[in-house]
Design a protein around this nucleic acid. Structure first.
Length: 192
DNA sequence: TCTAGGATCGGCT
DNA sequence: GCCGATCCTAGAT
């Protein structure tokens, strides 16, 4: 694993995040989440995400235009990290999308760890943050410039047939209309 | 100030 | 399949 950034890698920029949320979500599959901590760098390919579409979406933290100190990062420009504690135990990582003042985001739910040829899927938003050492200290970070957390395009291209769409997890409280939206994107797991 | 509940996970039956 | 852990946030009082 390269110490800083693979020569063929391109860090995702503001323009990559300032796009419609469903497109950003789909395109994050196959990108690499890079975490740099105490001079040590780890990277893992993103294999599962969910989209949350702002004020209209009853499953989103910003539904109805809710704006509290906790969700403030979601109102910032695309590429801002929103990290919050869920169930008192798990840190969940999101990236804001669309643009400043538009509180939509993508939740990172799964990554692939290990060698490219022999990778295991680490699934579950609380598990990946624990694995990468992501917590409240990264809340509000701008991942287009941060030296602690960013996303790289390493040239992996995902075929449409390799993507499964389905309803989001754990949002039944939003009612059938919103809970039923197929805004969860998964790479189909490799056969082992 | 008080209280309810949550974008989860792992262990147990 | 069920349940408890654990604590912060948001809304009510």
């Amino acid at each position: 694993m390269p110490a800083v950034q693979a020569p063929s890698a391109r860090r995702l920029s503001r323009a990559d995040f300032n796009r419609p949320t469903l497109l950003v979500a789909r395109d994050l599959l196959g990108k690499y989440l890079v975490r740099r901590e105490r001079g040590h760098t780890r990277a893992a390919m993103i294999v599962e995400v969910e989209a949350y579409k702002g004020p209209a979406d009853r499953a989103a933290h910003t539904h109805g235009g809710r704006r509290t100190p906790r969700v403030e990062p979601l109102y910032r420009d695309g590429g801002t990290a929103y990290v919050y504690l869920c169930y008192g135990i798990h840190w969940l990582l999101n990236f804001s999308t669309v643009g400043e003042g538009k509180p939509e985001c993508v939740l990172i739910r799964g990554i692939a760890i290990g060698d490219d040829d022999d990778a295991d899927f680490l699934l579950g938003p609380g598990r990946i943050t624990r694995h990468l050492g992501i917590d409240r200290h990264l809340d509000g970070a701008d991942v287009t410039v941060s030296d602690r957390l960013w996303v790289e395009d390493r040239g992996v291209r995902i075929a449409p047939r390799a993507v499964r769409r389905g309803p989001r997890v754990g949002v039944d409280y939003a009612g059938p209309h919103w809970a039923g939206k197929p805004w969860r994107y998964q790479l189909i797991a490799p056969r082992r």
